[in-house]
């Protein structure tokens, strides 16, 4: 079958390391002439501002997928953390309204709530041995219900300017996202934790026989995933200047899609942070360009749904090609 040159090229492309980066470039180049305002400095900033918080969530999810799990609750954790931040800091209704320490306390609360929710996921998966997707689906429902109950569906305004600045200055958000992504990348490639993560994802039984503390590492990974969602919540909340119980509700697809498009395997053991960066970038480009082309939110959702299916399909194809060799 691989004798045909076209097929061989396709196979090479499928197995290429930076397939998605090339895809991003080709996509941008192809759409730029037809899309008014696509290739501009201002639009690049828009794309980056959109992509930054999603990237942080996606990096956390990448770790979970590598260890062979899934976390569907990340976007609802973003929503709850956003609400908690608002409840603590808001000048209108915050518990620490006007207090000097409102911002640090707010940040701390957001991060600890999200890490705590990650810990609940981790316990459900490791100690209770509930399949990860159903465990995190349940926490997703519970957590988003909690966010809505806490606010009675209202948005919380009046966030302190010191906090909002985090979202207004693109370089600040960029640095937060960049540093966390870089750290995750280093952890995966240069530390014991990273090696253990891949080993568990490849073969949890073999890892456990080799003395890897499988339950502890898995638990910790869910905590990290929750914590990253909290970090993303800070960026989202500061960017939109409100604590919103429905924040990031429609981004779950972007997050799962970006990670899968980035080449992280749903079966565990394979994936890289760099792939996720490109995956996020790709979906952000798609989102932005379709918006500029005047397509509605719903059409874009449909296209993204198709894109994630295509990515999963590519992943399955890649696996098949890899096992053939």
């Amino acid at each position: 079958m691989a004798s045909l040159p076209a097929l061989r090229l396709l196979k090479r492309a499928l197995l290429a390391d930076h397939l998605v980066l090339w895809l991003c470039l080709v996509y941008s180049a192809a759409l730029a002439p037809f899309t008014p305002g696509f290739a501009s400095w201002g639009n690049l900033q828009t794309i980056l501002a959109y992509a930054m918080p999603i990237l942080v969530v996606s990096v956390g999810l990448t770790l979970v997928l590598i260890v062979g799990g899934i976390d569907l609750s990340v976007t609802s954790i973003v929503a709850l953390a956003s609400v908690v931040g608002g409840k603590v800091m808001s000048a209108d209704e915050g518990w620490l309204a006007g207090h000097a320490l409102a911002v640090p306390a707010g940040l701390l609360a957001m991060l600890s709530v999200s890490a705590g929710l990650g810990a609940i996921n981790g316990l459900a998966v490791t100690a209770c041995r509930i399949p990860p997707f159903i465990a995190t689906l349940t926490t997703m429902m519970l957590v988003s219900g909690l966010a809505i109950w806490l606010t009675l569906s209202r948005k919380i305004g009046g966030l302190p300017p010191g906090f909002v600045r985090l979202g207004q200055e693109l370089w600040l958000a960029g640095m937060t996202a960049g540093v966390t992504t870089w750290l995750a990348h280093l952890a995966l490639s240069c530390t014991l934790y990273g090696k253990w993560l891949y080993a568990i994802g490849h073969n949890a039984r073999a890892a456990s026989v080799s003395g890897v503390p499988v339950a502890r590492v898995t638990f910790f990974t869910y905590v990290v995933s929750g914590w990253f969602a909290g970090l993303a919540a800070i960026l989202f909340t500061a960017g939109l200047e409100t604590g919103n119980p429905e924040m990031a509700r429609d981004n779950l697809l972007d997050v799962v899609g970006a990670v899968v498009i980035g080449g992280t395997s749903l079966y565990g053991g394979r994936g890289r942070v760099s792939g996720t960066v490109f995956g996020v970038l790709f979906l952000a480009l798609v989102d932005n360009s379709l918006n500029l082309l005047g397509l509605t939110f719903y059409t874009i959702t449909m296209v993204k749904g198709g894109a994630i299916l295509a990515a999963a399909l590519t992943d399955a194809l890649r696996n098949r090609l890899l096992t053939q060799e």
Partner: peptide, 22 residues
């Protein structure tokens, strides 16, 4: 195509919601 059920149906879930809203 032997893709995990929950990924496929998560994708079609968004696809369907988008289609319906449209």
């Amino acid at each position: 195509l032997a893709i995990m059920a929950f990924v496929v149906t998560l994708a079609t879930r968004y696809f369907g919601r988008g289609l319906g809203l449209r």
